[in-house]
Simulated scan of single mutants.
Amino acid sequence: SLHEWGDHQGAVAFLDKIVDSCPWDSDVRELRADCHERMGNLGKAIQDLKPTTKLRNDNTAAHLRISRLHYSLGEQDDSLTEIRECLKLDPDHAACLAHYRQVKKLSRQLEAAESLIAESRYDEAVAKLEAVKKTEASVAVYAARADERICHCLSKSEERTADAVRACSLVLDRDPDNVGALRDRAEAHIANEEYEEAVADYERARGVDESAPGVREGLDKAQKLLKQSQRRDYYKILGVKRSAKKQEIVKAYRKLAQQWHPDNFQSESEKKKAEKHFIDIAAAKEVLTDPEKRSKFDSGEDPLDPESQQGGGGNPWQRGGGGGGWHPFPGGFNPFGSGGPQFKFHFN
């Protein structure tokens, strides 16, 4: 009567006592499973239905119901296992066949997307994940899972970092403590050179789960890059992307070096301004064309900054001649060496 009146919690209180006395009564377990399902306790509903697959002969209805419950929870592998049990009992069962095709299609799409991600084929993975959302629009857990993986894929694409920030933000609107989405959005912010936002996301992720993979390392990297951005950014100096190849870097360097060579300027103030730009341009080329120095810079350390150097390996900044200023190139660096155009230039 309580079940019929909609008092499912009250009904369960009685049913618990009945099951204790009659654990093998399938009718009682199915009734309690229905109460649990209506209250949203899908896991408990599955626990009650499992024994009924043995207590009743050829209980295809229980297998189908369990499969649908697993599917609603986002457990497509368990759902697939259970629906196959239904088809073993009755290969022509129409409802089980229809559900099997639905689960199998979704499962294949998810597996294909994960395989593409493993192969770093992120754009193709995004297309497959969008298809997942169309395949199962009525079960929110699959759309949420697809959005989370789309966020991850886009964060790995250098050309779609702005899309990544938007996609990850959608995930975080639904689940503010999603560490994976926070980490992926932080990486997208780093690619966009939005270091303060990246630090904020990593700190938030650390607050949720300090031991989550990549959070500590990512926060350290973001903090270093933020500190570095407040000093000088060699990529910005040359006007190239962080993904630029050596050839692009050298080309940008030569163009800017010719533009800012002090010999091109007449007044003393203009020459001093040009000299500063010229030194920064040469320093940027020195760092970004050296794989080891560039790797250090990308990890948040300026290899030409004496304050960032540790240990007793010597100071890479040498005192220049004449005026005694600090020069980032030991032994007298010729920024137009290695086949580049030759300029007469002397540091005062």
Rank of each mutant, 00 (worst) to 15 (best):
D263L: 10
S67G: 12
H63S: 03
Q228G: 14
R101Y: 11
L110H: 07
L116Y: 01
L80M: 13
E30V: 04
E119P: 00
L55N: 00
A113S: 09
A131V: 05
H261V: 01
S72H: 07
A212H: 07
Q47S: 15
L73A: 09
P176Y: 09
T81S: 10
R56Q: 13
P91H: 10
E75M: 08
H8R: 02
V19S: 04
R174N: 15
S169K: 12
L64D: 05
V126E: 07
Y100L: 09
L110V: 13
A164V: 05
K273T: 11
Y100N: 11
R84S: 13
F345P: 07
G314Q: 10
D173L: 12
Q310H: 13
S107R: 12
L15G: 00
K50I: 15
K272P: 01
N41K: 09
K296A: 15
Q310N: 10
L69D: 02
S107F: 10
A191F: 10
K241F: 05
S115G: 12
S308D: 15
W5A: 10
G320W: 05
A11T: 08
Y202K: 08
Y234W: 15
S138C: 03
L55A: 04
N59T: 07
D233Y: 08
I279Y: 02
E75F: 13
D78S: 14
V171M: 03
F329G: 00
D305M: 04
C151L: 01
D233T: 07
I237W: 01
W326T: 01
Q223W: 04
A252V: 13
A162Y: 10
A284L: 02
C22A: 14
E124D: 15
K273L: 09
V12F: 03
D280Y: 05
A131E: 15
H93E: 12
V19M: 00
Q266T: 13
L116T: 00
R32Y: 02
Y235V: 06
E111Q: 11
K246I: 06
A205Q: 04
E114Y: 12
S157P: 03
R185F: 05
R204P: 02
V19L: 01
Y122R: 08
S79Y: 04
E193W: 07
G40H: 10
A191C: 11
K236C: 08
L129V: 07
E159K: 14
R101I: 05
G300S: 11
E159P: 05
E203Y: 02
L225H: 05
A188I: 12
L129D: 03
M39S: 09
L49K: 01
D92N: 14
